[in-house]
């Protein structure tokens, strides 16, 4: 018993003969082939694909979560206060922070000595950005230099994170250290 489907195609003689429809299909695919081939031969790109590491696509969404950036203060020091919130919230345990203390700097006594992100584990969820109370870590839309042949190269150091795209938030004003000391102990 053969089941009849509601969308059973109605085929005329032309479609039943099959061979002419096959030739039509071949003409369509062959036309696409020759069109794209002509583009390649005239040094245009006959494809939508981007060669990823060599060629960055220009139309990333502004909301794209790409590589991390550690923002700086005006004097160029890292804004991070080493509170470890991002490392705590990170679901992939990709962030490692080693703190150091500078008690002369009263507004910013604690800072990371090493701040490293393991991009072989990072899942680009953006939780670290949302958890940060100091706006010290951000994600920008570009994703440069990720592919590598060695997994050790996937550890992003603090230098890299601070310097690959220097970012400073001018709205956030930090007084100079001496001035701050005067404010606290007048």
């Amino acid at each position: 018993m053969k089941k009849d489907y509601w969308n059973k195609p109605e085929m005329g003689l032309w479609e039943r003969l099959y061979i002419f429809e096959v030739v039509r299909g071949l003409c369509i695919t062959g036309g696409v082939f020759f069109g794209n081939m002509w583009k390649w031969l005239t040094f245009r790109k006959g494809a939508l694909t981007a060669y990823y590491p060599e060629e960055i696509r220009s139309d990333y969404s502004p909301n794209n979560r790409g590589r991390h950036v550690l923002t700086r203060r005006e004097n160029g020091e890292v804004q991070c206060v080493s509170c470890n919130m991002c490392a705590t919230v990170c679901p992939a345990y990709a962030i490692e922070i080693l703190s150091t203390a500078n008690f002369d700097d009263h507004f910013h006594p604690k800072a990371p000595e090493r701040f490293e992100i393991d991009y072989s584990r990072c899942i680009f969820c953006g939780f670290c950005v949302e958890a940060c109370p100091e706006d010290a870590i951000r994600m920008v839309k570009e994703v440069p230099d990720f592919p590598t042949y060695d997994r050790n190269n996937l550890w992003a150091t603090q230098d890299l994170l601070m310097n690959w795209r220097p970012t400073c938030n001018p709205a956030k004003i930090y007084p100079a250290a001496q001035k701050a000391l005067e404010e606290v102990h007048p």
Binding site: T29, V32, F33, N36, M37, W40, G46, A47, L48, T49, Y51
Partner: peptide
Amino acid sequence: KQSAIMADRI
């Protein structure tokens, strides 16, 4: 290569 060019790929 031919399938790629037919499908707008590289």
